[in-house]
Design a protein around this nucleic acid. Structure first.
Lengths: 136, 136
DNA sequence: TTGCGTGCAAAGGTTTTGCATGGCA
DNA sequence: TGCCATGCAAAACCTTTGCACGCAA
């Protein structure tokens, strides 16, 4: 979200390139480290974590926690993800599939939460976890 | 849900008593340990974790994973809980406050997602992110 | 007696942090 | 030059596990 001024470092660019190559699927911090180690273009683990955190803040990637003891999953959504209409996400806990929904009924949740519970929902960060059609 | 035969130990009974005293709110494994330590009625940390896990299996308490790096939250629902009775969570992105809701309207989301989108929502993992009353 | 429950300590794995150095603007 | 970013190692953190002993049934 915050278009904070950032330095354009080799590590950041390389990480962004990686994100784009796996666009559409998810990856963990460990995946990233392992990949770079195998490539020779090493990036330290701390930098990976710090850059991933920054990108989550910026809204370039999403962070999912499927299970408390497994590593967090990240997914590239791109820099232009925050334009246009509201979109809800469902994430399957089994196959990891991410489903995008445009649904009036779900949008009512927002006004309900706001009116009845004084809570302003952020659909960009909210993810519905569950089990998808095929996995049941 | 499994009514497996269990031993009735001092630790289990004490833990159950604690759960009932905080009924309606959340607690972590650490909370439990700290409380017992302050009481003198010590229960080892492993036992706390093992008993909590058992109780989750039995359906006496629910386990919520709000955020991968914070400890898991538990909530007592009692032995006679209606099947599938859980609560929903709202997490404020600003102050980090966790609000938990028991709300019929939100429960309708579950059936809506199931019927219209073939998605079986998991309220134990799903967290609504947004901005709370006081932070707005 | 049987074998589950407990306690202790140590391991496990992911993520964060302190501090000196490097590099972008 | 002024900061932010990086790298390394160590720490922090929650949770699980191995093993011997205790205790409920």
């Amino acid at each position: 979200m915050n278009e904070r001024s950032r330095y354009k470092t080799r590590q950041r660019e390389t990480l962004l390139a990686y994100c784009r190559t796996v666009s559409g699927s998810h990856f963990t911090a460990g995946d990233v480290c392992a990949y770079f180690r195998s490539q020779g273009t090493a990036i330290s683990q701390s930098t990976v974590y710090r850059q991933l955190e920054s990108m989550v803040d910026e809204g370039i990637i999403n962070k999912y926690i499927i299970d408390g003891n497994s590593p967090a999953c990240f997914e590239y959504v791109g820099a232009d993800a925050h334009e246009g209409e509201v979109c809800f996400h469902c994430k399957c806990e089994k196959c990891g599939k991410l489903i995008h929904l445009h649904c009036d009924e779900l949008e009512e949740i927002q006004s309900h939460l706001l009116k009845e519970h004084q809570f302003k929902l952020d659909p960009l960060r909210t993810v519905f976890y569950g089990i998808c059609d095929q996995c049941r």
